[in-house]
């Protein structure tokens, strides 16, 4: 598995990186950004893609790490899944992300793969898109003309397609704080290291026994991560009981357009989405009565 030859540059600042993109892009070359390489390298090694230039972001320190931005967290695009998973700020203010990355792939992939790389890659089966969407993340994208911020609802465009332009770099992701919210990521797989067949990201704020607010995101139920707004609305003001939650979760697949592949037909995925949504919301609400095998 040897990739085609390419030129390689590893800038140390975002400006240099943008310059490299602009320069080689203007020369008509195909330029690819390299983050953790966990999606890009397999593609290159299988020769599904053969860029002339690869711009490696791994030597840019400013792109790494999590910081407190006041009412939100700022996660650098090059922060690894493992670092996100072990970050105390994330755990406190965006528990849903902690839960989602903890079982992403395997330890090796989590130590190499990055939060920004996974979001930029925009695999609809990827585990970080739905939580980011559910938590109303916004995306800071740097380009030749400066930085712009894109809300989650506009970031994901299609399979492997985002709002990031060819000459742009995703630099950081802002996650509004969801302090005190319960969270659960319900991932349905056949083997542990697999991309989810369907997964549900749920976060809820309880007021006593009542669900005051709910956020539900769906993984692999369409060409982008989806937000199950019908479920969210149906949950608000309802008690966090199995019956009420399941009733709301019945709307999980409304408007979804899941794929059919070796792991399941679209109808099966729609069914899974409703079952898993119920379980995810109950678990997020701390009602773990229903244990799930697998």
């Amino acid at each position: 598995m040897i990739p085609a030859a390419f030129e390689y540059v590893a800038p140390t600042t975002v400006e240099e990186a943008l310059q490299a993109l602009a320069e080689h892009g203007a020369a008509g070359d195909d330029v690819k950004i390299l983050a953790g390489g966990q999606s890009l390298l397999p593609v290159l090694r299988m020769r599904l893609n053969a860029p002339e230039w690869v711009v490696d972001l791994s030597r840019i320190p400013s792109l790494r790490g999590v910081r407190d931005g006041g009412d939100h967290l700022v996660i650098g695009a090059m922060t690894t899944h493992d670092a996100v998973g072990h970050d105390p700020l994330v755990h406190e203010h965006a528990l849903l992300l902690t839960k989602a990355v903890t079982h992403l792939a395997d330890a090796q992939v989590r130590h190499r793969g990055t939060f920004g790389g996974a979001l930029a890659h925009a695999d609809p089966a990827g585990d970080v898109g739905a939580p980011a969407l559910a938590l109303d993340a916004s995306f800071v994208i740097a380009g030749p003309g400066g930085s712009r911020t894109v809300p989650a609802g506009e970031f994901f465009v299609d399979i492997f397609e985002t709002a990031i332009g060819e000459d742009e770099i995703l630099t950081e992701v802002h996650i509004p704080k969801h302090t005190g919210w319960g969270a659960h990521y319900e991932k349905f797989v056949r083997v542990a290291h697999q991309w989810p067949i369907v997964a549900v990201a749920a976060s809820v704020r309880l007021d006593g026994d009542t669900i005051a607010e709910a956020r539900v995101g769906l993984t692999n139920m369409g060409s982008t991560p989806l937000r199950a707004t019908a479920v969210e609305e149906a949950l608000v003001g309802r008690p966090a009981t199995e019956d009420a939650v399941r009733e709301a979760a019945a709307h999980a697949a409304d408007g979804a357009n899941p794929p059919t592949d070796l792991n399941g037909g679209a109808d099966y995925r729609r069914h899974l989405a409703t079952v898993l949504t119920g379980r995810a919301v109950l678990a997020a609400a701390g009602r773990n009565g229903t244990r799930v095998p697998g």
Binding site: R190, T260, D261, L262, G265, Y268
Partner: peptide
């Protein structure tokens, strides 16, 4: 024995069968 096959086997009687998994399977 994929989860999908198990699910379909259980539910095909009561549901009268679902749509098939299509060409990919």
């Amino acid at each position: 024995c994929t989860p999908e096959r198990v699910w379909r086997a259980i539910h095909s009687r009561s549901d009268g069968g679902g749509e098939t998994a299509g060409a990919a399977a």
